[in-house]
Design a protein around this nucleic acid. Structure first.
Lengths: 139, 139
DNA sequence: ATCCTAGCTTAGACTTTGTCTAATGAAAGA
DNA sequence: TCTTTCATTAGACAAAGTCTAAGCTAGGAT
């Protein structure tokens, strides 16, 4: 998988300095940021960037299918520059840290036909929860 | 599993008319309501009940472990009076309808050790998405 | 039955997260 | 370079949820 900016260029999508900063912030991160965290980091490099631009840009990237929008805690959405739907998420209940993880097998196989209630099921996402190594020590 | 009010009584938890109305609203529902939907329904029976009481009460029930707080859409939290952690959720991408479902096998088995990053993993929840029978017809 | 007190409820202000609008600015093709 | 179209901006607005201070009440004590 190529980097986010390369993937975004493939759509007819005007590349502005603001969008570049947002994309680079997302792509360089080892954690999944909230919109406000991205705004904060983008402001370090481009102090005049506006909140509306960050929110608009993130929503467009989601609509283009190039990033994932995640809702873990019900507080604020987080954004994952890895848009592949083949991974799931592991979250620390202590500090909120998050990792992308891969499961063995296809989650769709785990929902038997008589539990599908006639739905055409196309996607499954799993959230694993627990304590990260640091929070286990602290506990 | 007994009804929600019975389960709540087992904790030293003062049972007020407001809390009773909220518990009955949750327990009698076939769908998972948002806090505001619960407020609206509670108001039909007790017009003077306040928003703060509904939010406080729901948070307390969650803390007692007797209901589940769900975050599907990132808009508003929903509450599930079935607090058992052995079920998962199936959501229609068309109309938002939701069903509780059971999987075959234990989701914790599906995350291999080398994907756990040292976490002590205790819980897994799966969200299945697709189209309900009605929305398949409409499409 | 009545009293007392811890803790519940209330209205409304406040906070956080996110969206919308109208005016200005800039990317990219002609 | 010019022009058109789309992006950006500040700030108002909206939705979801929390907090506060004052009054009220459930349930145990008497």
């Amino acid at each position: 998988m190529s980097d986010l900016i390369t993937r975004l260029r493939r759509h007819q999508w005007r590349m502005t300095p603001q969008r570049r900063v947002i994309a680079e912030t997302l792509d360089g991160a080892h954690v999944h940021y909230t919109a406000d965290e991205i705004l904060e980091r983008a402001c370090e490099r481009m102090p005049e960037i506006s909140r509306a631009t960050v929110y608009n840009t993130l929503n467009e990237m989601v609509a283009l299918g190039e990033i994932l929008e995640l809702n873990f805690d019900g507080r604020s959405k987080r954004y994952d520059p890895n848009a592949e739907h083949d991974h799931h998420h592991l979250i620390c209940d202590g500090c909120g840290a998050m990792k992308d993880v891969h499961t063995v097998g296809d989650p769709l196989d785990w929902l038997p036909g008589d539990e599908r209630h006639g739905f055409a099921v196309t996607e499954a996402s799993i959230t694993f929860r627990g304590l990260c190594p640091e929070c286990q020590q602290a506990a």
